[in-house]
């Protein structure tokens, strides 16, 4: 068991390292570097920079070093000092810019994830037990449509309906009076009032997918021999269902928790952009459009980090619920 945890931990660290390389490559990908774009801006502002100044600047920033040295200093700065580079557009350190908005993204992602499971598990089990019933058909039809609707389109539709029926914008996460207010209970309450729309948008497809998974794995388990064996022992249907197939069906669901998180995090930026949420979504898109690459790379890194940690946590949870994995390596 310890070996299992250890190997998953090592795997997590390796994945993080690989992701950091990818993020760094993304930063380096656009032609020209930070100094170039700085020179460009100065040019446009009517105060061109001299070649000498430019070289100086490159030297100071380490941009004249080979890429592996640059990568090394980027990573070590990040790990040692939490310094993720400088955002040109915001004229602030990347870590500060992201830090302002990250909590909202996380609040959104985790409440979506939580609600997804809360809704999908009972429905999935019910659909499996009442396979081919009207309710089952209803949920699977709804699920198909939910899966087929891109979440930005869902956001647009909800926003249109909100406009039409309530005459108000359903975008954003706060009412105007709380927009720039400091954190307070009122502001939290206001956030929760606004959060449900983006949660629906972000969670619909995932919930549909999860219902199908729960239904399929419960059905799978219901057909297993041990279920009949337990029935032959005289257990009541409800107790039997909850104790054996449902409990077993939870395994693959917990095991893919990390992937679900990946999925939600993956969809978050686009929902943030469409609904103009004050989270990291619009920040990320603008950094991409403006080639503010340290910020963009930092965002990619953060998005990946959360899913990688999420996967690690779901591995640990799996150990808790499945004795077969716990026994490995003992």
């Amino acid at each position: 068991m310890i070996r299992f945890v250890f190997s998953r931990f090592v795997y997590m660290v390796l994945t993080m390292a690989a992701v950091s390389v990818i993020a760094f490559i993304l930063i380096q990908l656009p032609p020209g570097d930070f100094a170039d774009s700085y020179a460009n801006k100065r040019q446009q502002a009517g105060a061109p920079i001299t070649t000498e100044e430019l070289d100086n600047m490159r030297h100071q920033l380490g941009l004249d070093q080979p890429w592996h040295i640059q990568y090394g200093s980027w990573v070590s700065n990040m790990v040692l000092r939490g310094d993720m580079g400088y955002s040109w557009e915001w004229r602030r350190p990347v870590a500060d810019v992201i830090g302002d908005r990250l909590p909202l993204t996380l609040a959104l992602a985790f409440s979506t994830l939580f609600l997804m499971y809360l809704i999908a598990i009972p429905i999935g089990i019910y659909s499996a037990v009442r396979q081919y019933s009207a309710t089952d058909h209803l949920f699977s039809t709804a699920g198909y449509v939910g899966l087929a609707t891109p979440n930005f389109l869902l956001a647009l539709i909800l926003m249109y309906l909100g406009q039409k029926w309530f005459g108000q914008s359903v975008g954003g996460l706060f009412s105007p009076e709380y927009q720039d207010a400091p954190w307070s209970w009122g502001r939290v309450g206001n956030l929760i009032e606004h959060l449900w729309v983006p949660v629906i948008v972000l969670g619909t497809a995932g919930t549909a997918y999860l219902i199908r998974t729960v239904r399929a794995s419960t059905l799978d388990e219901l057909d297993k021999m041990y279920v009949m064996a337990a029935r032959a022992g005289g257990l009541s249907p409800m107790r039997l269902l909850l104790k054996y197939p449902v409990r077993m069906a939870l395994n693959p669901i917990v095991a893919t928790l990390g992937w679900r998180l990946t999925y939600v995090i993956s969809g978050a930026p686009i929902v943030g952009v469409v609904m103009s949420l004050p989270d990291t979504g619009p920040l990320f898109l603008h950094s991409l459009l403006n080639q503010d690459m340290y910020l963009a790379g930092g965002m990619v890194l953060i998005y990946c980090a959360f899913t990688i940690i999420g996967t690690f946590i779901s591995d640990l949870l799996l150990i808790l619920i499945d004795p077969r994995i716990r026994m490995q390596g003992n």
């Binding site: 994945t15 992701v19 990818i22 993304l26 990908l29 656009p30 990390g258 992937w259 990946t262 999925y263 995090i265 993956s266 969809g267 930026p269 686009i270 990320f284 898109l285 991409l288 459009l289 080639q291 963009a296 790379g297 965002m299 990619v300 998005y303 990946c304 899913t307 990688i308 996967t311």
Partner: peptide
Amino acid sequence: SIPTLPLWLALSAA
């Protein structure tokens, strides 16, 4: 295990 959409966004932005 990595969130694909942000990555593809970044790639196409480049």
